[in-house]
Nucleic acid binder design. Structure first.
Length: 497
RNA sequence: GCCGCCUUAGCUCAGUUGGUUAGAGCGCUGGCUUGUGGAGCCAGAGGUCCUUGGUUCGAGACCAAGAGGCGGUACCA
């Protein structure tokens, strides 16, 4: 055995680290289309593209454990040769904050940029969750007013449309962090750093409304909750009145913005922060109404929280609605594909002064998966026409022919591998090609080209039993003059279903 | 982090009470067929039975630990 081991050449196992995916041709094309659609929306609204590096200094990303000099778990980090910690970015927002802080004086404010790229998270992957995935972001830095938030919300809705969705198939659901702050303030949770942890727990609890239901959330708002596996999650420790107030708040919204605003004004009582939040929603509503964004595209929804702690004002999620209606005839949610909101403290970490910011972000592959499920994806690129290399002496001729198809915008390739015609036809079949081009020296001399429709040929094959018949019948092919062969290919392609 | 399930060929899996050379289907490669993709027939390649340790005359099978995968839950900037 030891001898065997010695003689065996080292062969690495072909494998991927978990949570890292190879992305297929079809997936990449769909992703590129989606990103392109979003970019065109951002671009026409005057946003500028930006590309930041995958690595940032760990302290710039802001994730250090308080009692540790190493970057937080959850990020991929390594020490550079000068011993400084560098981390792979875990989102596109923190690098943007760094970029703005670094170039603050040179940028015209508000600085509005869009960006798409891979982000990395060093955590356990789950179904539909990876350790590398593509995010697509647009942000507006340096504008404090609700107008900037309204713009991001409108952009989110426009991106939904650009992705191919019809109005009614999606909804942007808007809330405001300040409202919940107001409710909690009235329930004895101070609106200060002391209450931060408790507020975060309340947010996490509300975020689980759709999964755990009101009873589960009630437990998480109170003492805590034990799940089916026996694991215990500590609660936010609100008192009974506080739990009631929070649950009441999360169900206060209707599908009419004006109504919801009126309800909220009543709920906020005397809380200055709460009323401030309502005021912002009124300003956003005014803009949305002026531009014609109705309740079907943008709704106010008090159950939206976004789990993240760094939001400071308006927050929103882009949700896809299925075709399926519930009993009352309303569309049923299938989930959030993106979201955003105001984060006024992220850039100011780098500088003394306040730098307000607001943005929108969506996960590209998650959005695609959802679109796929809704059958809202465009068809992808057609397979190429395959030009068989019958005769190596004619190779130059084959490439010239491919060029003629390219000039007409037809995807085509010459078989550059080794093997006889059988192999080449197998290759064409495997590539899902519809048309194979056959030209040997006979056709060449006669000024002809033979075209074979592989789709039609496959249909014909079903009726053929014997191999000899299959070989000799040569179904679904025609020989055309070299002079007009390109239009013959075009006609054959048009014939496809 | 916690809980559960799983790990034998590229894929899906079988493998008897612990017994000699570990199998099947599909897929792959080649041939029948150097001018034709299907079907068919023939041949072939491909294995650290996840790893390590233990029990045993003997382990793919039994035991222990570890690793990896899947699912749930928690966290998620």
């Amino acid at each position: 055995m030891a001898k065997n081991k010695k003689n065996k050449p080292f062969r690495p196992k072909a494998r991927r680290p978990r949570g890292f995916e190879d992305r297929s041709a079809e997936m990449l094309r769909a992703e590129a289309r989606l990103i392109e659609a979003a970019f065109s929306v951002y671009d026409i609204h005057g946003f500028e593209p930006l590309q930041t590096p995958a690595f940032e200094f760990a302290d710039a990303l802001g994730k250090f454990l308080p009692d540790d000099d190493r970057p937080n778990t959850g990020v991929f980090a390594l020490q550079d040769d000068d011993e400084q910690w560098m981390s792979l970015r875990y989102d596109l927002t923190a690098p943007l904050a760094r970029f703005v802080a670094e170039n603050y004086d040179a940028l015209a404010k508000p600085y509005r940029r869009y960006q798409a790229g891979s982000v990395f998270r060093n955590e356990k992957p789950g179904p539909g969750r990876f350790r590398e995935f593509t995010q697509c972001d647009a942000d507006s830095v340096g504008a404090a007013g609700a107008a900037a938030d309204a713009e991001m919300i409108m952009l989110a809705a426009e991106v939904m449309r650009a992705a191919g969705l019809k109005d009614g198939q999606y909804a942007i659901r808007v809330n405001n962090r300040k409202l919940l702050d107001g409710i909690l303030e009235s329930s004895g949770v101070p609106n200060t750093a002391e209450g931060a942890e408790q507020r975060l727990q309340v947010l996490r609890a509300i975020d689980k409304l759709d999964r755990l239901g009101a009873a589960g959330v009630e437990a998480l708002l109170g003492e805590g909750r034990e799940d089916d596996s026996g694991d215990y999650t500590d609660g936010a420790k609100l008192n009974a009145a506080g739990i009631k107030a929070v649950l009441g708040f999360t169900t206060a919204s209707t599908d009419n913005r004006a109504d919801t605003i009126r309800t909220l004004e009543g709920l906020m009582g005397t809380s200055e922060r709460g009323l401030d939040g309502v005021k912002e929603l009124v300003q956003i509503d005014t803009i949305l109404n002026a531009v014609g964004f109705g309740n079907d595209r943008v709704a106010y929804d008090t159950s939206i929280v976004r789990g993240l702690g760094y939001y400071t004002g308006p927050v929103f999620e882009a949700e896809l609605l299925t075709e399926i209606k519930d009993r009352k005839g309303r569309p049923v949610r299938i989930g959030s594909v993106g979201g955003g909101g105001r984060y006024d403290d992220l850039v100011s970490r780098f500088r003394g002064q306040a730098v307000p910011a607001t943005g929108f972000s969506f996960g590209v592959s998650r959005f695609l998966t959802a679109l796929e499920r809704m059958d809202a994806l465009e068809s992808s690129v057609k397979p190429p026409v395959v030009i068989c290399a019958f005769d190596k002496a004619l190779m130059g001729e084959y490439f010239k022919m491919a060029g003629e198809l390219h000039a007409e915008g037809i995807r085509a390739e010459v078989f550059v591998g080794a093997g006889n015609v059988t192999k080449q036809m197998k290759y064409a079949d495997r590539r899902n090609a519809q048309v194979a081009v056959l030209m040997g020296s006979d056709e060449m001399a006669a000024g002809e080209v033979t075209l074979k429709d592989l789709y039609e040929g496959a249909k014909a094959a079903a009726a053929i039993e014997s191999n000899e018949e299959w070989k000799s019948s040569r179904p679904a092919q025609e020989t055309v003059s070299r002079a007009n062969w390109v239009s013959a290919v075009r006609a054959m392609l048009a014939n496809a279903s």
